[in-house]
Amino acid sequence: MSLFERNVPGITEILKNSAISVAGLGGLGSNAAVSLARSGISKLIIADFDHVEQSNLNRQYYFQSDIGKTKVDALSDHLKNINPDIIVEKHHVKLTKDNMISIMGDSDLLIEAFDKASEKKWLIETWAVNFKDKPVIAASGLSGMGKTEDLKVHRSGNIIVCGDEITDISEGLCAPRVSIVANMQANLAIEWLVKNKKRDKI
């Protein structure tokens, strides 16, 4: 039995030739990366400057045994435990406007998974200015609990934002809502890859 035997028919071949960048490995990035690995993405470029702390474990894809490790190292281990063949390009670095394109650019699309709104803004806009044909899939408004029906996808061209665009960190961050939005991002990424790469082959 192969790892992807139960995958959606026809997508494994496409995802096997795809690369996704994930900027930030907190609640959004770690959960999105895991879903992408399980879906069969062959390469992930991941970047985060932080280490795993106890307070991360209420929503981020880490375990007690990860505490103190860099997030890139801990998550890379988990991704390879899911799919030993996945290529994980790790960057333990603080992403900036100046280094982001060279670190994250060699991929089909970007998952924005930052914490601060001001950083989301420059990340989304820097990517959009540099890559007209590659989407940035961002998240805004995933805090608090409940209000599942408020979570939506807002898109304009290659800028896509998931979440309610209202709730913020002052309401606290809880696993279900953060994970739902992270998985909305992963789901959109897979959908975009399958749709666009299939079209490229025609």
Binding site: A117, A138, S143, I166, I169
Partner: peptide, 12 residues
């Protein structure tokens, strides 16, 4: 025109 205004909120 079609205009999109994305509100960016803290949290990730």
């Amino acid at each position: 025109s079609s205009i999109s205004v994305f509100h960016l909120a803290h949290g990730g």
